[in-house]
Design a binder for these strands. Sequence first.
RNA 1: GGGCGAGUAGCUCAGCUGGUCAGAGCGCGCGGUUCACAUCCGCGAGGUCGUAGGUUCAAGUCCUAUCUCGCCCACCA
Length: 789
Amino acid sequence: ISTQNVVEKELAKQGLTRHDVGREKFEEKLWEWREEYGGIITHQLRRLGASCDWTRERFTLDEGLSRAVREAFVNLYRKGLIYRGEYIINWCPRCQTALSDLETLHEEEPSKLWYVRYPLEEGGYIEVATTRPETILGDTAVAVNPYDKRYSHLIGKTAILPVLERRIPIIADEAVDPEFGTGAVKVTPGHDPTDYEIGLRHGLEIINIMNLDATLNGEGGPYEGMDRYEAREKLVGDLREQGLLTRIVPHQHAPGRCQRCQTMVEPMVSEQWFVKIKPLAEPAIEAVRDGRITIIPDRFTKVYYNWMENIRDWCISRQLWWGHRIPVWYCDDCHGKTVATVDPEECEHCGGKDIRQDPDVLDTWFSSGLWPFSTLGWPDNTEDLRYFYPTSVMETGYDILFFWVARMIMLGMEHMGEVPFRVVYLHGLMRDEFGVKMSKSKGNVADPLDVVAEYGADSLRFTIITGSSPGEDMKLYEEKLESSRNFANKIWQMARFITGNLPEDYHLPSGEPGEWPHLRLEDRWILARHNRVVSEVTRLLDSYQFGEAGKQIYEFLWGEFADWFIEASKVRLYGESEEAQRTARDVLVYVFGRALRLLHPFMPFVTEEIWQHLPRECQSLMVAPWPEPGPVDEEAEALQEEIWEHIRDIRNRRAEEGWPVEVRPAAYTVAGELREALESQRDVFAWLGRVEPREIAAQREQSRAGSAVVTGRLATTLVVEVDVEKERQRLEQEMTNLEGEIARAEQLLANEGFVSKAPGEVVCRERDKLARYQKERQKLEERLASLAR
RNA sequence: GGGCGAGUAGCUCAGCUGGUCAGAGCGCGCGGUUCACAUCCGCGAGGUCGUAGGUUCAAGUCCUAUCUCGCCCACCA
């Protein structure tokens, strides 16, 4: 419907309708549109890094799928599960087609309730209330509740319909709610679903008062030719004049509206094709109930049952030109129906040649419902079909659980005798920053290509995956995208650091890393942490907790691997024995390489690119084996965590007490295992705590006087030494540099013409800089003053 | 009318089947020109996990009631 609407809008610009150009020409235009825009979505998917077998791309109207549609239709028809019948359906007067219940949306809106008196044949009147006065013209009865004592004496009597003066019976039906309105209801079987049912029960006449465009037809009497709303206004006026309108009260009302164009739907009785759904629904319910299909998140299971158990026959015919034409031919001679998978030459009943195909097309979800097997060559028993059916996971948004998922299950079980998939994973919906559902008609859709261009596909993927929990909607925020992009950059920087420290001929040693010689405590720690993350991420992915899995990797790579391990590795890489350097490199490469595999499903692009620059055991990360978790060295884990805690403590003291600082010995009196560990990690401790052992400090030319120096035994005594004179010189040099920067910034600001690109932007930046410089200068002055003291 | 979801630091949200969480990102405050990274590093402030009861040795995490917001389903004219 939406495709047809788009093309019709194009035509409308030239003042044409689809009827003006004719069915054949219009279908051509539809195909043109499809050729032009059909590739966009797959292009978007590719850019997002969706890893699909693109050779298997299928389109609903492809040859093979069309064959499957006909086969399915004929099969269901022969089994008596598809029938053509008169029924009250939802009619969109704008789209000029029938709609299924799912395609009509109900939303509460303020309306009115009109109270109208219907005169009685025997004198007096009965009062009814209605939200659609124009439907009075189609009334064929007045109904009351059989147990409503107020009206029991009127049951069986006759009322006179206002205006048209039709004699209509007063009947009793339990569908009438005595509490609502007056307790008496006008019955319009031709234009109201409830009334239609009442009409069936009581054998009432069905009067259709409208044309397909919702203007009144001949049954409308004096209102013939008017639009439904125009007729309403006129009729209400007439009723008022005749004194039959007693009052109008405000009323909340939820009328049906067309899902595609928002036009108010008109219930109408019309001949349509239906799928008899109960026989299909039962096995589909059973399949979920007995666990052959699992729905995730679990709460949607209940929603599924509720819908399936109360399901009504499915109206599948649409008065459109875009879609699968219904494979039924009518005979002009004997009026028989020929239902066939291939276009017939003649009527199968009388052999007559004058046959015409049903002009209607099928609901798009009818063909979509066949997708799990129609795409694999069904009805032929192909190798693909045998191999791939049933599939493992069906992943889609929860908003099409009924539209699509339920129908795939029903039609799959009917035609294949087996469920189409084992797991249904339902994700939430993307909303804009205000929480409004993104939709094309509202124009608040973010094109993934734009987002990818600005932040990269990896960032978008990571943001979406980690931004919410399963089945929950999420709002797309720039800030989230930025943070993911920063993560991608961080990964990149880690890679630069690691590869930058590898010799040309580097090879990862063989054997289990836990067995490597010369491992230090921090190595054992990161290997343990890494093993824990591998098993945790694997578990989370297996249980469909994708967001949580992504966060674990993020925390590990940034918070542990980069912030602690890479930093700690520098003491070895920058100045210890060849052996120590080698061990550090091995652990870096090993852990990083395995973490990249975990991250690959989330950020395929940056991880693959990095993989190509690392020593690797296979060509592409995409096909690298998923890591198996190794043993977790809990002892190393605990010990190292404790040392990190002490380093944080040092940093805290520095932050609190200012720098330089004297660290009191008492805080670091430790004993036993931790003491040994600390001793073994003096260098790491010193580097990360920025507390340098004297002997290392001496080796470092750039060692500044402001640094604290550890003296004596590290774990017991930390004292600070400051060379006042050196510090003063350094500060003064800094001050000189700063003055220079300030002068330049001021000059730039004074001459705005100097700025070429993006007027104002650079100037602003300079202004910010200047403010920062001045703040810095003030601090420098303070420090110099305190130093003098 | 029925059902479901959400209500957790200023903002946006994680916290799976009850006992290391009271957390992350952004924002905010303080401090950083160290050769992977300012798309950065270090430190910090901020929440009685909507409200009221209850179960339990133990509850954002279970039960009951209730308030607010959102969604889905439904033939109340």
